[in-house]
């Protein structure tokens, strides 16, 4: 399963509107996508705003994105870019 490790760079961390952006982007793909916070052993479905919020990730937190499915590589690239670019907030 392709996965990527990213560091949250935006000052507000994984807040509600950022989580909503992840969900909107994830919904453009077919693959199953998870956002994982390895250091806290927490997993969230990338299509669940509330699940992502409960990761409690802040600026500097490490996140792992996992994707499985027909467009897993594209999904992983798109989500990585969104997070690495700070959700367009910085």
């Amino acid at each position: 399963m392709p996965e990527a490790i990213v560091i949250l760079v935006n000052p507000l961390g994984l807040h509600a509107r950022a989580a909503a952006k992840i969900v909107r982007l994830a919904n453009e793909f077919e693959s199953a996508i998870s956002i994982v916070r390895p250091n806290r052993d927490r997993h969230a479905d990338a299509r669940s705003i509330l699940g992502i919020l409960e990761l409690g990730a802040k600026q500097g937190s490490e996140l792992k994105i996992e994707a499985t499915g027909c467009d897993e590589t594209l999904a992983l690239e798109a989500l990585t870019q969104l997070i690495v670019e700070g959700f367009g907030e910085i």
Binding site: N39, R40, L50, G56, K58, G60, S61
Partner: peptide, 16 residues
Amino acid sequence: QSIYRTGSLLEIHKTV
């Protein structure tokens, strides 16, 4: 489920 006493989570949140 969405109600937390956040103080109890702070120790964990120190780990990034």
